[in-house]
Write a protein that binds this DNA or RNA. Structure first.
Lengths: 118, 118
DNA sequence: GAATCATATGCGAGTATTCGAATATAATGA
DNA sequence: TCATTATATTCGAATACTCGCATATGATTC
């Protein structure tokens, strides 16, 4: 039954494993938006936006609500926002580590900058 | 520069978008393990384990430490454990919602169980 | 009903992932 | 040096993803 959980997690991750879809989820952070609004805000082809939304739906990341002519999307669970937030902090932690390493490398080999790493 | 962050996030997600790799990260939760230990605990082909570990390395999810003959892996940042933990809670929340829906459906159509949802 | 707007789906090409089998490398010990 | 152990890399086939283009569906308005 643990397998089911890992399967579930990996599908969530797969759903989020694309920058466009992450942008969509981030835009939905503060409330629902229609497919058209998402498409416009992200400058996507209509079909492409719809395909990405289909993935997010399939992976249970968003839910959709039909209102007349259009379809409104919202995040199914705030937990996912929390996940993105953790990764944001992680990113900056990583970033400063990297910057520190670069600074250190620069100090150790001050003559040439950018000593190509293979 | 927000694009870079989304790119980064999506790569992390891509790295975790596979049940085997999730299992690896979970096994590393309590400390480092060698490639061989991971392979054995998960019953993987040696090459396959190594490939998955390469992905986890490439996506900056784990770090490796060589000790003599073998290579020990550990999680680069506890944040990732936290992410998995959030998804675990999310999973059970989803699960009970689903169970509730099924119970409700069963109550509404008590004669036949499993009215195939297409 | 016809025209239109919002969204979804199907198709095909290009690219990326995943796996097992085979091979390569690197450290250890005889 | 040779053999052995631990790990990594390469290759090829199968599968999956992503995109643009074309087409389909569904609601609204005339």
């Amino acid at each position: 039954m643990d397998d089911a959980l890992r399967q579930f997690k990996s599908e969530i991750f797969q759903g989020l494993a694309n920058p466009t879809r992450i942008a969509m989820v981030e835009l939905l952070r503060d409330g629902e938006l229609s497919a058209g609004q998402l498409m416009q805000k992200l400058g996507l082809e209509q079909a492409n936006a719809s395909q990405h939304l289909a993935v997010l739906r399939a992976k249970q990341i968003v839910v959709s609500r039909k209102a007349g002519n259009q379809v409104y999307y919202s995040i199914r669970d705030r937990a996912l926002i929390e996940v993105l937030e953790i990764l944001r902090r992680y990113f900056y932690a990583q970033l400063s580590t990297t910057v520190d390493l670069l600074k250190q490398a620069a100090r150790e080999t001050p003559k040439t900058r950018a000593s190509s790493h293979k």
